[in-house]
Design a binder for these strands. Structure first.
Lengths: 267, 267
DNA sequence: TAAACAGGTTTCATTATTTGAAACTTGGTT
DNA sequence: AACCAAGTTTCAAATAATGAAACCTGTTTA
């Protein structure tokens, strides 16, 4: 049978893990089987193995599987070591305080936007539920500004992977429309979300680039059409740029930090 | 060579993943090799495969590996589906608002405490960096109250896995001391952390149990000896109990929620 | 009460993948 | 130029994964 994933057995097992996660709800073995390329016993063993390894959790009551707790543990380390979040945190705090609107930090993951951190000006933040979330690149502020500063080939490759689903009447609906928008963003150095993903929701977004111009991530300030407009958001461009610059600087300097596992203030 | 993990190739690969995560910093191939049971080419291929699969991230600059972004994506789903967090969230918010101190939600993972959610009364929360963190069970409030309500066999099994490292002069330093403490906690229905993990840090903790008495998780209110004392914290017991009860109730009712992937308020 | 059934689990000979000693690169030192 | 450490590739042997078929087990239907 054709190469399903590459990367042998491990790749196949992780494919199953993704499949479970993609359901977005507890899923039964049979449901997985129905949409799996693997024969029953093979899938069965993968699910068993993953459950053993706590990468999946099994609910015997309902006979369903969900992604497991081990992932939460591992992701903590991933978030802390493989993302901009730890470097950006203080700057994000400052930005949030200054603008008083919802603020996001995102990175590009494959052809999608991966939200890494968030500050919600008002309510006690409910962050974790947001960090880790993925969104479309072609119709979010952060997505577009990150795309805009990739190199030609990378842009085309990512564009090919976009679905151009029309979330709202303002959603860019073609590769060409997106290319034009990316061109504008490169000119300006920043971009907007003009209710492209959700009606009433608008944002300004600023890329975070290395000094060599490589894309590290993006920042955005989000608001609603009832509270402000694009011109109002544009006022945040200077502070966004400053914040992005600070993050860039810290990210470069952050070569190898001191390594003692200084258990700061104990969870 | 002895069975290293069980669970075949997948188990071995995940063992490597854990090893990288355990370093807590970017790690070189050679460093992994030095403490690995696997021969060089075997380890090499695992690391390659995991990197391919975005379970590890490779920094070509420094030639180091860290846990990968795919884990952050997967953990988002895990947190949302396999933990108490989504059910507990509103109650945690309310508790936090009422007590004005730092509040934690934790679950038991293996023999460790896994922190699932947190509310920090004062500053804009920096949560994700905490959720996913693991801590010792024998010297934290949440750890002890969860242990206390396991059944005999489970308790002994978990006790065996504790290290009894003396974090402070108050840390319980033996299985017997811990058994006695767990007995008291069962009597009272709740427990304290008496500066056992960190000097100056104290907390009250309340288990979250099913109506049948099975341990689901635990809540705690944390403060410092400079701001209050154990008697002061004890005043929070009623509201903690109420909150735990509400979470229990919601968790039971939360059988199968409605399934439409209602994208609430966009990220 | 039995027969059929759906969903899940196990068997076992076949097949494909993993394994690791050794050899080989590559980039940096002496 | 010779050496060395770290990382990478080769390839035959050893092992683990595979999946058709058979088998459970609890539930519904005749």
């Amino acid at each position: 049978m054709g190469r399903v994933t590459g990367d042998g057995t491990v790749g196949k097992a992780l494919e199953v893990l993704d499949q479970v996660a993609a359901f977005g709800r507890p899923v039964r073995f049979g449901e997985l089987l129905a949409q799996s390329d693997f024969p029953k016993p093979t899938l069965y063993r993968f699910v068993q193995t993953l459950t053993n390894q706590q990468m999946l959790a099994y609910d015997p009551e309902r006979q369903t599987y969900t992604p497991g707790l081990r992932l939460v543990r591992l992701a903590h380390t991933a978030w802390d070591q493989s993302t901009l979040a730890p470097v950006a945190r203080p700057h994000l705090d400052a930005l949030s305080k200054a603008v008083g609107e919802t603020v996001h930090l995102a990175q590009l993951d494959h052809a999608q936007v991966l939200y890494i951190d968030k500050r919600n000006a008002n309510k006690p933040v409910q962050m974790y539920s947001q960090a880790g979330k993925v969104g479309p690149a072609y119709c979010t502020g952060v997505g577009k500004v990150m795309l805009a500063f990739l190199d030609e080939d990378a842009i085309e490759s990512v564009i090919e992977q976009q679905s151009f689903h029309g979330f709202t009447e303002h959603t860019l609906d073609s590769a060409d429309a997106l290319r034009a928008e990316l061109h504008d963003i490169r000119q300006n150095g920043y971009g907007f979300d003009r209710e492209e993903h959700e009606p009433g929701i608008i944002c300004v977004a600023m890329p975070i680039l290395t000094s060599a111009g490589r894309v590290l991530g993006a920042l955005s300030v989000t608001s609603t059409t009832s509270r402000t407009n694009l011109a109002g958001l544009e006022a945040y461009v200077p502070i966004l740029r400053e914040t992005a610059d600070k993050i860039t600087r810290d990210a470069q300097n952050w070569s190898f930090p001191d390594y003692q596992t200084k258990e700061t203030t104990g969870i």
